[in-house]
């Protein structure tokens, strides 16, 4: 069942916005601009999720990506800001030869993917075409059974409920594994981002390295003396 009327209008608006914001992400000179364009691309994709009936994933996308990951990106950009690229002194792309080669191969890839989508979707849609009307009826029936919203004009989706149900029913082990992955990521990023001084105060550093670095840094010398006692 394809999208209809206003849905299709919003589909084209958000789809084209997502693609253009993605293009600008890759082409922007300033990394902060890249991050902001990526945020608008992610929001547009979240809108596409809503259009395809995945409201829960759209909310997660906004919360996790835009609220969490992109803020992290912006922090890191501010931390390592070099400033040379904004003023136009540094080339933002690789060397000419590499760029040309990669763009040629990307073009071939996009042609292949579009051909595959074209071929595959005609077959898929032909398979589903016979049941299209019964599916529409079924959908309308299901929609009529949904709980009404507070205003009485709209109905409340059960998408979150259903996703939660099948997440715990069919994917509880991957769910637990994902939690361990996140724990490892937290510990790993803290370990990676420590400064030399923080490493020295946690006594987690090679004594030779510490001795070599302590010559330049008086604070490290104190820590070195403390660790030798």
């Amino acid at each position: 069942m394809p999208l209809t009327s206003y849905e299709s209008l919003f589909f084209w608006i958000f789809g084209i916005a997502a693609i253009f914001a993605g293009l600008l992400t890759v082409m922007a000179r300033n990394a902060v601009h890249s991050a902001l364009f990526l945020i608008s691309s992610l929001v547009s994709v979240a809108a596409l999720f809503v259009l395809s009936g995945a409201e829960f994933i759209a909310g997660v996308q906004i919360l996790v990506y835009v609220g969490g990951v992109m803020v992290l990106f912006l922090f890191v950009i501010m931390l390592v800001n070099v400033g040379a690229e904004e003023s136009g002194r540094e080339e933002i792309f690789n060397k000419q030869r590499q760029v040309t080669t990669s763009l040629v191969f990307c073009f071939l890839l996009v042609l292949g993917v579009l051909y595959a989508v074209n071929k595959g979707s005609t077959v898929l849609l032909k398979q589903s075409q016979r049941s299209e009307e019964s599916v529409a009826e079924q959908q309308a029936e299901q929609d009529a059974r949904l709980k009404q919203g507070a205003t009485g004009t709209s109905r409340i989706t059960t998408d979150t409920e259903r996703v939660g149900n099948s997440l715990y029913r069919y994917a509880s082990l991957p769910f637990e594994i994902a939690s361990i992955l996140l724990l490892v990521a937290i510990i790993g990023s803290v370990m990676l981002a420590r400064t030399l001084r923080q490493e020295a105060s946690a006594d987690d550093i090679d004594p030779e390295v510490l001795a070599a670095e302590a010559i330049h840094d008086p604070e490290l010398k104190k820590l070195e003396a403390a660790s030798q006692e």
Binding site: T25, V26, A31, V99
Partner: peptide, 15 residues
């Protein structure tokens, strides 16, 4: 494809 092109062509590791 835009993402792949970005990975292959940009020099800034954050981008």
């Amino acid at each position: 494809i835009i993402g792949v092109a970005g990975v292959l062509t940009r020099r800034n590791i954050i981008v």
